[in-house]
C-alpha cells in the first residue's frame, strides 16, 4: 500500500521534468498572455460597435448585430477556429488577391482574429445588458436639466453602465484565458500547446497538473484583483445604499 502511495505521488509530482522543460511552460505562458490580452482589447472595442448596432433603430443594422452575436455565442469556439484557420487555407487565392494572406497564414493571427470576434459577441451582450439596466428616468432627468445627448451619455448613462458591466467583463476575461487553450489545436505553442508538447515527449502526466496549477493561479489572481477594482469603483454605491 505504501508502495502504491509513493508510486502515485511520483505520478503527480516530477521535479526533474520541471527542470528540463520548465522554460517551455514559461514561453507558452507568454504566448497565452499576448493572445488573450490582444483579443480581449480588440473585442472590447468591437463590442461597442456591435452593441450600438444592436440598439440602433435601423432594422438591418440591429438584425445583423443579432445574427453576429447569435452565431458566435451559439457555436463552439473550436468550430469557429477551425472554420477560420482551415477555411482561410481553402480560399487562399482570394486572400492573396486582396492582400490578406500574410495575416491568415499565421496561426497566431488566426487565433487572435477568431478570439476577438468571439469575445466581442459576449462583451456586446454584457454592455447591452448594462446599458439597458440604467433606468430611463435618469436619462429623462438629464434631458430635463437641458443636457445634450452626448453629455447624458458621457456623465449619466456610461458611468453607471460601466459599473454594472465591470464584474461580468471580468468573468469574460477569465473565460477567454481558459478558452485560449484551444489555440494549441492549431499548432500555436501557448501554455496548453507547450504542455501537450512536453506530454508527447515524456508521456508524463504531471505536466498537465503543472499547467492546471498555472492556469488556476492566473485565474484566481485576476478574480481577486478584479474583485478589488470592482469594490473600489462601487464604493460610493454601497455607501449610498446604506
Amino acid at each position: 500500500m505504501l508502495q502504491t502511495a509513493q508510486d502515485f505521488l511520483s505520478f503527480i509530482f516530477n521535479f526533474d521534468l520541471l527542470q528540463e522543460y520548465g522554460w517551455r511552460l514559461v514561453a507558452g505562458l507568454k504566448i497565452t498572455f499576448e493572445v488573450v490580452t490582444i483579443s480581449v482589447l480588440i473585442g472590447f472595442v468591437l463590442s461597442y460597435f456591435v452593441c450600438s448596432a444592436r440598439m440602433s433603430r435601423n432594422v438591418i443594422l440591429s438584425g445583423a448585430a443579432v445574427a453576429y452575436s447569435t452565431f458566435f455565442r451559439g457555436t463552439p469556439l473550436l468550430c469557429q477556429l477551425y472554420l477560420v484557420y482551415y477555411g482561410a487555407g481553402e480560399i487562399r487565392p482570394f486572400l492573396t488577391d486582396v492582400g490578406l494572406w500574410w495575416f491568415f497564414r499565421d496561426a497566431y493571427y488566426c487565433c487572435i482574429f477568431t478570439f476577438s470576434l468571439n469575445t466581442a459577441a459576449y462583451q456586446s451582450e454584457i454592455l447591452r445588458g448594462a446599458l439597458s439596466s440604467v433606468p430611463k428616468g435618469q436619462i429623462e432627468a438629464g434631458a430635463s436639466l437641458g443636457l445634450s445627448t452626448y453629455r447624458i451619455a458621457r456623465h449619466i448613462v456610461w458611468p453607471q453602465a460601466f459599473l454594472i458591466a465591470l464584474r461580468p467583463l471580468g468573468n469574460e476575461l477569465i473565460s477567454m484565458i481558459k478558452a485560449s487553450a484551444l489555440a494549441a489545436i492549431v499548432t500555436l505553442l501557448d501554455l496548453m500547446g507547450q504542455t501537450r508538447f512536453i506530454f508527447a515527449r515524456t508521456f508524463d502526466f504531471s505536466v498537465y497538473l503543472y499547467a492546471a496549477v498555472i492556469y488556476l493561479a492566473i485565474v484566481e489572481l485576476i478574480r481577486r484583483v478584479w474583485g478589488r477594482i470592482d469594490k473600489a469603483f462601487s464604493r460610493h454605491v454601497i455607501a449610498a445604499a446604506r
Partner: peptide, 18 residues
C-alpha cells in the same frame, strides 16, 4: 517547425501554402 495533432492537417496546410 509546426506540430499538428494528425498528419492530414499539415498536408492541408501544405496545400494551402501555409
Amino acid at each position: 517547425v509546426k506540430l499538428y495533432p494528425t498528419q492530414d492537417e499539415p498536408n492541408l496546410d501544405l496545400a494551402s501554402g501555409r
